[in-house]
Simulated scan of single mutants.
Amino acid sequence: MTRTDYEAIANGAYGSRAELGNRGISSGDGWAYRGRGLKQLTGRNNYMEFQRWHRQNSVQWPDDDLDFVENPDLLTTMKYAVRSAASFWINNNLYKIADKGPHPEIVDKITKIVNSNTDSYLERRKHFSQIWRDIFYAD
């Protein structure tokens, strides 16, 4: 497969996803705003939201006035990959949900916000339970 093939697949799958803010298959938004960063930020709206958050917090990084909508590949850089994940977590109040405890229904609530269209709810609960046991109940 070539890059052109990958672009066509991404634009076909995500280009017309209005809930992501993408502007149609021919816009190239599916490819341009494909998943990047630690959270795999996807969709024009999510990149715009990260842009707003990044600028609102610019006092923390005054020499980092970048445009992530115009340059989405910046999220392949570790510090922006981490910041984009933090932004998503904060902007969606996921910390409030997570603070309700290590329960399967909490994992489902977070999953619904992070990736509502997934069919991996059961698998995610299983992985979370395993990680939780390994961290807190290790010998």
Rank of each mutant, 00 (worst) to 15 (best):
L41R: 02
Y80E: 11
T42Q: 02
K96Y: 04
Y6M: 12
D119L: 07
I110K: 00
S120M: 11
K96E: 15
L75C: 02
D108A: 11
G24S: 07
D119V: 07
K126V: 07
L75S: 02
A18S: 15
A8P: 00
I9R: 00
G37W: 01
G24D: 07
A86H: 06
D99E: 13
Y121T: 04
W53R: 00
A86M: 07
Y47F: 13
L75R: 02
K112M: 13
K39S: 04
N45L: 09
P104C: 09
L66H: 07
V107C: 06
D134F: 10
D119P: 06
K96N: 15
S129T: 10
S27N: 11
E105Q: 12
A18R: 05
D5Y: 11
D119Y: 06
S129E: 09
G21D: 12
Y80G: 04
A32V: 06
T2A: 13
F68H: 01
D108K: 09
G21P: 13
P104G: 15
D63V: 04
L41H: 00
Y47I: 00
S84I: 02
N71T: 11
S120I: 05
S16E: 13
T4F: 05
N92V: 04
N71L: 02
D29S: 08
D29W: 00
V114Q: 07
K96L: 15
F128K: 01
G101T: 04
G15K: 01
